[in-house]
Design a binder for these strands. Structure first.
Lengths: 346, 346
DNA sequence: AAGCCTCATGTTATCGATATCGTCACGGTT
DNA sequence: AACCGTGACGATATCGATAACATGAGGCTT
């Protein structure tokens, strides 16, 4: 930066002002500086800037995995918003493990983010302590923790599945099963299952039928395996809810392979409203939670919280509930099961 | 850090040494320091460390989008490897736009990454200039640029589709179409299409049939629309290759909806070997490029290049070609078309 | 026993920017 | 004409760590 200053015939301070738009600089000086910058190919060093201004321009976000389109949507939503204020998102993946989450949080804190967004509301005690002690806004997402660390932008996973169950019961299904992950730590999946169980009780259904397969996040293939296991174990089951759209899709494809009509033989629903659910044949009944919008809302709240903190009036903990929508599609249609091949095969 | 030093009765320098494992510190001193750290809840500030050591611990990676499972797989592979050396990955998304890529590169350079991984081999002139001038290892991935900036870990998109075409021709298909994106900048998609065209010429097929729909990256729904358009435009077409597995899946589902047997009426192939392709019914013939492994290889090369640079012997540009594999599945099976419903509908 | 090496630790300078305060010139006010 | 406010810019201190060199205590060599 000193080089640029010399070349433009000004002080480093003026260069700094010119480059970040703050303070007052004469248009001519500004032009001279920008030209010097261009000639020298100078690039501002934000690490240094961060050190003196105590603002890193980072917001950390922790998600279980990048491969899950649902969470990457949320991250995209966050980026959409934070990008407008030139804030950069530092992404960390926790691999559905609280222990890894704790480790990632520690790494992240070393970068002094101005805000932290985490997925879920259950953490190791040390993780929780670190988040609290960080002294920056924290947003927990995708759940509705009973005792939030700070802010929350989420929804109740249990409630979504309860609603879905109510709909299925309304459509006349009584023997409804649930497919979930067998190993690993997936609090949101557990909540959904709890919602299923509550619904079974509330609607006085005969019994709960839960098939647990694979390691979270369970795959399409796990769904395929699970549906077979389900039909073998409880042949009387009429409908099944999968913990997410991936396994629901796998289950449907397996039914195709075996010639089990969906929803004729078995109605299948998922969670998440992946693109796949809309495009699948039959289209999959699911719950939409608007992941990208969830990310955007978290982003806006984060900007507000950061600004408030610098203004000396930290935001008191906010709880934003994002709406979920039941998307009823063909895979649970009660009669005239749309995907029947009768008469359509050439 | 001074507080920790005082509490442990040592100098800040010793604390620094203890914390980053470098240098020599007596076990007792180490223990005392770690205890002071724990008591004070002190967290190292890497921005400051980066400034003085001139090592940020960042590697930037630019991908078109997080939502594309293929690229996130590559990023995961990168993280797998870089994590072992406590290097953090800074992810930037370019939204399939060279202009955005240029902007993101500039932002990234302000963070002084120790290495940069970009997707693709075509960039704006300024982007290229910035990458060159950055003075750190650069790896271009997912393509085989003719004139690389520095290192390359990729494959020829054209060659993969040529291979796939050869296989289809081998299976007896002669009228083969290609479905691609209509708007937007997707160099890899264009390469694949070029491979398709070369194959049409080489095998002396009657003509090229290209359907372009939607904006890149094209969706499942785009694939569904495209296949309808295809059958209407060229009813004689026997097989179609889609620019990726997403639209291939959408096309297959649309065929189901319309009662067009796959592969009986139309064989359909994709690209990328998404999980969906394996689980779909019929399973989708595709090209696998091992995205995660690609990421791992890029990661290893990056570590090597970074180490070499610090050792004063920068690595001369390397070109790593990752193998692609044809995965032939049911969606292009020539006869006894597996997915026929004859006799399986109850 | 003198000399040397090694190990653990301390001192000082520095990384590259920005916060803060100071300076100076200029134009408007009374 | 003296005064004051404002705008443009400079000088200095500082952010929090680490590189590089210095120091001193012991153990080892011959």
């Amino acid at each position: 930066m000193a080089d640029v200053a010399r070349r433009a015939g000004v002080s480093a301070m003026t260069v700094s002002r010119a480059l970040k738009g703050t303070g007052t600089v004469t248009p001519e000086t500004q032009a001279r500086i920008l030209q010097a910058v261009a000639e020298l190919g100078y690039v501002l060093d934000k690490s240094a800037g961060a050190l003196s201004s105590k603002k890193t321009g980072f917001v950390s976000v922790l998600i279980p995995s990048l491969n899950n389109s649902t969470f990457s949507d949320t991250v995209h939503g966050l980026i959409d918003v934070l990008d407008t204020q030139a804030m950069q998102v530092l992404i960390g993946t926790t691999g559905y493990s609280r222990a890894r989450e704790e480790a990632v949080i520690e790494t992240m804190l070393q970068r002094r983010p101005e805000g932290i967004v985490v997925t879920g509301g259950r953490h190791t005690p040390r993780a929780r302590a670190m988040l609290t002690a960080a002294g920056v806004p924290v947003i927990e997402t995708w759940e509705q923790p009973a005792a939030p660390i700070d802010h929350v932008v989420g929804f109740s996973n249990a409630a979504t599945v309860e609603d879905l169950m109510a709909r299925l019961v309304d459509r006349g299904y009584r023997r409804i099963a649930f497919i979930e992950g067998g190993e690993g730590d997936d609090p949101r999946g557990e909540d959904r299952r709890a919602g299923y169980e509550r619904a079974v009780a509330r609607h006085r259904l005969e019994r709960t039928c839960v098939i647990a397969v694979g390691r979270v996040p369970i795959s399409m293939e796990d769904g395929a395996r699970a549906v077979v296991q389900l039909v073998e174990t409880w042949p009387e089951v009429e409908a099944v809810i999968c913990v997410s759209d991936g396994p629901a899709f796998g289950a449907i494809m397996e039914c195709h392979r075996r010639g089990w009509a969906v929803p004729g033989r078995l109605a299948i629903a998922g969670f998440g409203d992946f693109e796949l659910a809309r495009q699948c044949w039959p289209s999959i009944t699911t719950v939409s939670v608007g992941s990208r919008d969830l990310g955007r809302q978290a982003g806006s709240l984060m900007l507000e919280a950061i600004a408030a903190r610098y203004a000396g009036a930290p935001l008191s903990p906010r709880r934003v509930t994002v709406a979920h929508t039941l998307v009823e599609r063909d895979s649970t249609a009660r009669r005239a099961s749309p995907p029947t091949w009768a008469g359509r095969v050439a």
